[in-house]
Amino acid sequence: MVNRILVGAHYGLKDWVIQRATAIVMAVYTVIFLVVIGSVGPDSLESWRGVFAGGFMRFATFLFFVSVFYHAWIGIRDIWMDYIKPDGIRLLLMVATATVLVGYAGWAIRILWRT
């Protein structure tokens, strides 16, 4: 029997849902990617670039990257919460994690839209 009042705090439900939603996006993309790679069989710079030149694959890859970074944020944050007990160090590690992931997102966009 749960006697807590469940109103007013999120109890991590939002992150729990996002962890799973991003997982499904990545899983679907993984299958699409393997099918595309398997059928195109890119063996040169041109054919490899061609895989990401189409609007669909570029957008799907972008969605995949965003899912990876958000998913990684929740997973790595859980690791810090499980093993790092001093609040200051934990906060520092969380901020560092979020910072590099936002940076990676910018990097991924640059890679996808420059080619």
Binding site: W48, V68, V100, Y104, W107
Partner: peptide, 13 residues
């Protein structure tokens, strides 16, 4: 991730 992103970038640029 940085190694993989670097690989991805250099494979396409």
């Amino acid at each position: 991730l940085p190694f993989l992103l670097w690989l991805f970038e250099s494979s396409l640029t």
